[in-house]
């Protein structure tokens, strides 16, 4: 956390020194600051910041890739005359326990085109998902759990 604040400070310093207050400059400053902090890190007292940053970036790319794939599939289905979807409502058991984990997972699932989180059971153990392309319910459950949920929990925990 301290390192993150330092990184923001370095970004501000870069923006101030270049004298142009634009978003591009801020981003460049942030990246340079990250590099500086990475080079100046101490080997004897490892910080979680760099690991977390890498995990977050990896997850972001994974999610964007999934988003793109799902988007292309739904777009293709919308624009071609035949409907090829096989929609279903699937119950997925949750490993996410806290409110934040569950709401993050549900929101990311809804954000991916073609899947929509409908309900969470009252004891918070099952998430009901409406999905547009289900060939096999168990396969779908496994995809969600292994793919999105596992990676999300890795980042959040």
């Amino acid at each position: 956390m301290t390192l993150f604040l330092l990184n923001v400070l370095l970004a501000l310093a870069w923006t101030a020194l270049t004298g142009e207050l634009t978003a591009t400059n801020m981003v460049i400053g942030f990246l340079l600051g990250y590099g500086t902090l990475w080079m100046a890190r101490r080997a004897d007292a490892p910080s979680g910041y760099f690991k977390k940053a890498r995990q977050v970036i990896k997850f972001a790319f994974f999610f964007l890739w999934e988003l793109l794939k799902a988007n292309l599939r739904v777009t293709y289905d919308i624009l071609t005359p035949r409907h090829r979807m096989r929609p279903a409502i699937i119950a997925v058991p949750l490993d996410a326990k806290t409110d934040m984990e569950i709401s993050f997972l549900a929101n990311l699932i809804t954000l991916t085109p073609g899947t929509l989180s409908l309900e969470v059971s009252n004891d918070r153990r099952v998430l009901f998902i409406h999905a547009m392309y289900v060939t096999d319910a168990d396969q779908f459950r496994r995809d969600i759990k292994r793919g999105l949920e596992q990676r999300l929990l890795e980042v959040l925990r």
């Binding site: 409907h83 979807m85 096989r86 929609p87 279903a88 409502i89 699937i90 119950a91 409908l118 309900e119 009901f128 289900v134 319910a137």
Partner: peptide, 10 residues
Amino acid sequence: LWEGTIRDEL
């Protein structure tokens, strides 16, 4: 739901 829906576990 649409009649083509294959499953409703809810």
